[in-house]
Nucleic acid binder design. Structure first.
Length: 278
DNA sequence: CTGAAGACCTGCCTGC
DNA sequence: TGCAGGCAGGTCTTCA
């Protein structure tokens, strides 16, 4: 489900719903887990200790959501199918609802994740960057750190297809399988182009395209192919703006030739064979 | 070290 | 209608 724009959309929605930007503190009043594990074993005792503590505004690092409190941080990754929604009064639980959090402002959040590739973990206060989940992550794509010089240096010795490289979270975070195809289409680069054979000029275009596409996707509330919903149940509308992903056989918006699809390193990849040359 | 493939899970869609 | 097979937005582990 979620790449950076979907996680960022969810983060903003959650902060808005919980009114975390206001002066009034928001406290955890109940935390409940309906199973012992997702992709990891859930450290229930440590997380239940957060009850009574104030929640600060929710942060994002890469595709991870961070719920910071003075007593530690609840870390969450959505995997492929994870999602948070508001549990309304008298609303029943659904299949695959795994965690419930209640706050003193009466808001109840439910974490649902059918495939259970998600993560819920506890991170020691002030030591977020030392967490095993976060410590090897590369640059945030919307930060100044992620520029053409940085990216060019990182790919200098990499002989893998560029598509794999822009999805490598050790280099740049947040780009997943959908946006990787979209970004490469935008700058006319073939997904199988070997990373270290890209010119610096192409790298400038690539860095710019990653920036632009992720920002536009955030502005559209993310991409809903199947599962992704905002906290209120809304779909993301960037799917209507996808140029190649999921469009096998349809005509290219630039040259009107059919879009091609193939698995690259096990992931479905879409591109225009005429607009994107190796 | 790098790169590719396998593994982890459930649900949905297609085709026989 | 039923069932097998393939597919899905992620990433850690294993193997060459």
């Amino acid at each position: 489900m979620p790449e950076l724009p979907e996680v960022e959309t969810l983060r903003r929605e959650l902060n808005k719903l919980l009114k975390l930007d206001s002066k009034t503190p928001v406290k955890f009043t109940a935390i409940e887990f309906k199973r012992a594990d997702l992709r990891n074993k859930i450290p229930k005792a440590k997380l239940i200790n957060l009850i009574g503590h104030n929640l600060y505004p929710i942060q994002r690092r890469a595709k991870y959501l961070l719920f910071p409190t003075s007593a530690g941080t609840l870390l969450n990754h959505l995997g492929m199918t994870g999602n948070w929604r508001e549990l309304k009064d008298r609303e029943d639980f659904k299949n695959h609802d795994h965690a419930v959090i209640e706050f003193n402002n009466k808001v109840k959040l439910v974490y649902n994740d059918p495939r259970r590739f998600g993560i819920i973990d506890f991170v020691i206060p002030q030591k977020e960057n030392e967490s095993l989940w976060l410590k090897h992550l590369g640059a945030e794509p919307l930060s100044k750190e992620f520029n053409a010089e940085y990216f060019f240096a990182k790919i200098k010795k990499r002989v893998a297809p560029i598509k794999n490289i822009i999805m490598d979270q050790k280099i740049v975070v947040g780009v997943g399988n959908i946006y990787a195809s979209e970004v490469l289409f935008k700058c006319h680069i073939h997904p199988l182009h070997i990373a270290n054979k890209l010119s610096f000029k192409k790298v400038i275009m690539l860095v710019d395209a990653i920036n632009t596409i992720l920002k536009k996707a955030i502005d559209s509330g993310g991409t809903t192919i199947k599962d992704f919903r905002t906290v209120g149940g809304e779909k993301g509308y960037f799917v209507q703006k996808l140029k190649v992903y999921g469009r096998k056989g349809s005509s290219c918006h630039r040259c009107h030739k059919p879009i091609q699809a193939k698995k690259i390193s096990g992931r479905s990849t879409y591109w225009c064979p005429y607009c994107q040359k190796k």
